[in-house]
Structures are given as structure tokens and as C-alpha cells.
């Protein structure tokens, strides 16, 4: 039987690589922000899966903090793109 966590991690890794195409190619700045947001979401999922696979609660705490901080980063990038700052 295949290990579900390992499979999920490999698929998420490939997805992050695919989103990076949009991150580098994206014709406008908001496109790149969208790609970055997607990468952040996938990273949080990957950290959660790491935490369960190794049974470390600390990893899940790191994921919570990463989710909140990446949100702040997205907001600042959006402000920059919208010329509010």
C-alpha cells in the first residue's frame, strides 16, 4: 500500500513547480501576486502534511504562523500593486 502522505507531498511539490511558470511568465504584476498566493497555500498544506507524517505538533504551529504571515505579505503586495503606498 502506498503511503498517502508521501504521495500528497510529491503532488504538492509538482504543483508548486507548475505555478512557478505563471510566477515567472505572468504578463502583469497582479498575475504574479496570484501565483505567489497559490504557492503560499500549497506550502501551508505541505507543512501540515509534514507535521502529521512526523507527528510533530510544532510543525502545525509553524503552518499557522506561516498562513497568517503570508496573508500579511499578500496584503502588502496588493497595496503596492494598487498604488496605495
Amino acid at each position: 500500500m502506498i503511503d498517502p502522505w508521501q504521495t500528497a507531498l510529491s503532488v504538492l511539490f509538482i504543483l508548486i513547480l507548475l505555478v512557478m511558470i505563471r510566477l515567472f511568465k505572468g504578463p502583469t504584476a497582479p498575475d504574479r501576486v496570484v501565483a505567489l498566493d497559490a504557492i503560499n497555500t500549497f506550502t501551508v498544506c505541505a507543512i501540515l502534511i509534514f507535521g502529521v507524517a512526523f507527528q510533530e505538533t510544532v510543525y502545525v504551529d509553524v503552518a499557522i504562523v506561516y498562513a497568517v504571515l503570508s496573508f500579511v505579505g499578500t496584503l502588502y503586495l496588493a497595496k503596492l500593486v494598487g498604488r496605495d503606498i
Binding site: L75, A78, V81
Partner: peptide, 9 residues
């Protein structure tokens, strides 16, 4: 935030 910023841009 992104959609509003994109519209403003």
C-alpha cells in the same frame, strides 16, 4: 485585496 488592487492599477 488583489482584485481591488488590480482594478485600481
Amino acid at each position: 485585496a488583489i482584485s481591488r488592487a488590480a482594478y485600481r492599477a
